[in-house]
Amino acid sequence: MLKMHNIRKSYRTDTIETHALRDFSLQVNEGEFVSVTGPSGSGKTTFLNIAGLLETPTGGQYLLDGEDVSSLNDRDRSRLRNEKIGFIFQGFNLIPDLNLFDNIDVPLRYRGFNAKERKKRIEKVLEQVGLSARAKHLPAQLSGGQQQRVAIARALAGEPRFLLADEPTGNLDSLMARQVMELLEFINEWGTTIVMVTHDPDLARRAHRNIQIVDGQVSDLQHGTVGAAREIA
């Protein structure tokens, strides 16, 4: 599903160059639920951004679904994000001016679906996250947990193969966090590959496999029998 080989990512500012990822190699298989942990600033978000085509690596090779995506242009990357990848963010990132229905509609419009198809999908995912009755509400009228469920619905509406979550429970209390985790596990059971960055060791343990990133590199492999990264290396 996802195969990174010797990925490097450095950020250059006027004064310093930060190596956010160095010789980063990793493989995630179809249907896996991988959790990513590591200290703050270690490169977790950078990894997720590259995996989700939000940023381009400085060097190395990245195959998504067998396709080398390192050299794609911006337009094709946008299309791939839209069709194959779902994002869930720590801050939910719902568009505050749009109601739940219109929020979930955003990626579907970029996809070019007709109104009927979009409505069908939106109603379906709203039902899945248990918020059908709130379709016309604005994000601000919902609790954090509910907002994150809408964000998950928005990520799911395009039926992505690959779901990326950056600390999806970071802003939620433990009860809401557990609900969101259960929803993700449910989604994974239905076949969506998930990579989730988290600080919560309990949640991290519930994934099939945990990857720890330290100082821009994969440092430790748990749960997984044979480390995919080591395989490539």
Partner: peptide, 13 residues
């Protein structure tokens, strides 16, 4: 932020 989110969700430039 919203523009970034829209881009992440598949909006082209």
């Amino acid at each position: 932020k919203q523009i970034g989110v829209r881009r992440a969700l598949g909006a082209t430039r």
